[in-house]
Design a protein around this nucleic acid. Structure first.
Lengths: 236, 236
DNA sequence: TTGGCTATTTTGTGATCACAAATTAAGTCG
DNA sequence: CGACTTAATTTGTGATCACAAAATAGCCAA
């Protein structure tokens, strides 16, 4: 019955007694937030999947209360869809949504990368190179979940250096929106014919070339979404 | 004691009896959401203002519960700031935040306007012209709150025609973030020397000229934020 | 077997409670 | 009069409850 768990994050906290409140500030909410975000970004939550308050709460060992807040939070980022009857589900992809996400990513992410470039040094380039190596392994081994986690880590390792307070949250919202759909694509097409422009991006960082970095990010987005996306969508 | 009310939206619903639940689906939450969004967009919530659960709840005649969800929702859009101690406040503006918001608006809003153009007809142009006339009145009468409400209505009358599911929510988040600050600017500088490119935008819509519309929107953003913003910020 | 009706269960919503952390107020001593 | 300590209040957090709408399961008749 499509039980798609949120992951092994449940951590039942067997020490805490009943009636005990506040291990510390907003811990339960933070735990739920991290769990759901991770599940969305790595594709463990499939578009159309129903997300229930009590279900998530029980799975994570918390009361429905922090789950409610997290769901509202993610719904505000359009990462979850609250239907008119109140039921919550992972949004389904549509061609128009996909085109718009692609457009928004191409507008924002190259800009974010350029903003980050001055703060990126050779140590960061080294870390990115290691992540990219792991990405190659995930592709060849066909581990889609691991690929998505690492691809996200690669991009946001760059973006985080921008110290952006505005563009960054917008881009995070976009990733939450397209990630679940991309997972279904990988499940159908596989990860074998995935090509990325990460090595070009690393080269641009090493040579401190903003134009080349921007171009590499844009090309990576276009290849990642363009090739794998369009022909995998429901008609029109 | 800076009581800045959320507005005359409280509507105590004197008919409902105590213990009565669900007038209909999510009515309380929708009411709170609309009230707070409106208060932010028209500058009735000033940067730094403390927003308390029970305070808002009592003011709007609801329980703290729907307020909690709305606050989480707006915090996810960076329209409210939840500090480490849990206290909630309207975010303060900083030069870097301001620059980024300007950059993001220039990236997204002209694009949104271009997307909307094919769906805009002469009836829409007429409505926009009427709004712009009211805007002129608000400027000359110095009614900053009315100006902000109408300026928002003008822009989103255009953007709404784009039928955008992705870019539109991102832009809404941006407006929620800069509106409270702009209100403080108007309070200091006044609205007299405000100039807008709305008439050029309307002309571009009438002549179905995407380039001209995009340019008018960009110029409007630049003039609205560039002239009034930078020199009104705390140092560096 | 299938169509439509009813009963059961699930689920979101709003409200209230208990608790602890944090803020504010009050009081006291120097 | 002012700085420090302490008490009272405010405030967010998590949990539980009651309720209604919605979805599902079950059932009976055609």
């Amino acid at each position: 019955m499509n039980k798609t768990s949120v992951g092994n994050v449940q951590a039942p906290r067997p020490d805490e007694q009943e009636g005990a409140t506040s291990p510390n500030r907003g811990a339960a909410r933070a735990q739920v937030d991290a769990a759901v975000r991770s599940a969305l970004l790595t594709g463990r939550f499939i578009p159309g999947k129903a997300v229930t308050l009590r279900g998530l709460a029980q799975e994570l060992g918390v009361s429905p209360m922090p789950v409610r807040e997290v769901i509202q939070r993610l719904a505000a980022e359009n990462a979850l869809n609250v239907r008119q009857n109140g039921r919550v589900q992972v949004p389904e992809m549509s061609p128009s949504r996909f085109d718009e996400i692609l457009k928004a990513r191409l507008l924002l992410e190259p800009e974010l990368a350029e903003m980050a470039l001055p703060q990126l040094d050779h140590t960061d380039a080294k870390v990115l190179e290691e992540i990219d190596l792991e990405i190659d392994e995930s592709i060849s081994s066909g581990n889609a979940e691991s690929y998505m986690r690492l691809n996200h880590a690669f991009h946001f390792k760059i973006y985080a250096s921008s110290n952006s307070e505005i563009l960054m949250p917008l881009v995070e919202s976009l990733w939450l929106q397209f990630a679940p759909f991309m997972r279904t694509v990988y499940g159908r097409v596989g990860t074998a014919n995935l090509v990325d422009w990460h090595k070009e991006a690393i080269r641009a960082i090493r040579s401190d070339d903003p134009t080349a970095l921007s171009a590499a990010i844009a090309a990576d987005i276009r290849d990642g979404m363009g090739i794998l996306g369009r022909e995998s969508l429901p008609e029109s």
